[in-house]
Design a protein around this nucleic acid. Structure first.
Lengths: 220, 220
DNA sequence: ACCCAGAATGAATGAATGTTCATTCTTGAT
DNA sequence: ATCAAGAATGAACATTCATTCATTCTGGGT
């Protein structure tokens, strides 16, 4: 939803100030999660250390184990945050009380999925760093599965509505939703790994093309 | 192309035998790379240690630094192997002297990309483990980019031929190739992270659907 | 002005890991 | 049978990292 780093008034640490600040638990947690995201994006999940994260956050090492009980837990909570932020944003759009027109709602979804907020290297790096470990870590799999399933259901529902409205025949909402989700994931991957070959502009064109082919009356 | 583990006669280590074996350099390298793949799949890239890999290979710790100069290098070479294996297989099919019929060639490609060989958890885990680190490690990005670009060109060429043969209009080969590649990547991701939600059967149906919508005369 | 609950610190600790290298062993050539 | 080249070993070393906890500090309540 809202950008994580804007949640706190504090802003950048005032250069000279070494004065110890006491802040509520929730705020410190978020501060550490934000720092973790930046560290993962810059150094890779396997190179992240507690010292690195706490220094990035401008705090001492001990504090990480005070608010999260362990490094493992900090990483887990960071994944949960990123996953919920992404899927939450999608779901808000798809439920879409704001946007009555279904075609426009589709457009808004695409804008969100391939727009500035989500396709920052930071966010995508974190996303795929965890995917990479998911094969070996059931905890990660579970976190992602949970939010994923909900988003998939909403997308299928939206597609179902569109199919009914457009009277499209020979189209299966579920299958199409699976394909569209996979396509978006694949495009994110391309943007992350081969940004030279795939521009954001082209990624959007590709996704839009997929939707146009499926729902010609709704996307022009 | 051929499965990596079948390259060597040696087979599984004879249970009791502790006798030291001397083998040519190339063979030991492959043995270590295979072990690395298994370790990454089972424990995740960030948990892999040299001791773990060498034990998995049935060898001593020192040997890894004898044949690869460092852990970093072993991981790099492992990525290169997996990347070339996957893209090499694709390219062989797409160049396709074997299969003159373009529709059948497309089918063969899809079979390869979503067939038993590639969609093993082992291979997919490794694949995405590296993608996850790619954001922070230019070396990985370069390895993947290189093989990726070649495969993308071949795919675009194949699509161009199909478009010409089928006289399809309003279709851009390049854009379609980007979309198809992204779709396949996304499906692999789904198979890895949410195998409960996405079966191999359904993944194939989704990919086939994409192709059918684009080239109705070639895929039925 | 004083106090104290608990937030924050960071030096210390112990466990784990990558790398080295002196030594042992194997093999093919002589 | 002998030997040298070099493949293989694994104990030892230095480093790095997560975690702990005795201590310090802060700010709201009285």
């Amino acid at each position: 939803m809202t950008d994580a780093s804007s949640a706190v008034t504090e802003a950048l640490p005032e250069a000279g100030s070494k004065r110890r600040q006491i802040r509520p638990k929730a705020e410190r947690r978020q501060q550490l999660i934000d720092a973790t995201i930046r560290c993962i994006a810059q150094h890779g999940l396997s190179a992240v250390t507690m010292q690195m994260v706490t220094r990035e956050a401008g705090l001492s090492v001990g504090i990480a184990n005070l608010h999260f009980e362990s490094k493992d837990n900090l990483l887990k909570e960071t994944l949960r945050f990123v996953a919920e932020e992404y899927h939450g944003g999608q779901i808000d759009i798809m439920e879409g009380g704001d946007i009555p027109d279904l075609g426009e709602r589709l457009d808004a979804l695409l804008d969100f999925q391939l727009g500035r907020g989500v396709t920052q290297r930071q966010k995508m790096s974190v996303w795929f760093a965890y995917y990479g470990e998911a094969g070996a870590r059931p905890v990660y799999q579970k976190i992602v599965s949970t939010v994923d399933r909900l988003a998939a259901q909403k997308l299928e529902a939206l597609f179902t509505d569109i199919i009914r409205e457009g009277d499209y025949s020979g189209v299966d909402a579920r299958e199409l939703a699976t394909g569209y989700s996979a396509l978006i994931d694949g495009l994110h991957l391309g943007l992350l790994v081969t940004p030279r070959e795939l521009s954001k502009r082209r990624a959007r064109a590709v996704a839009r093309d997929f939707l146009r082919r499926a729902f010609p009356q709704h996307i022009h």
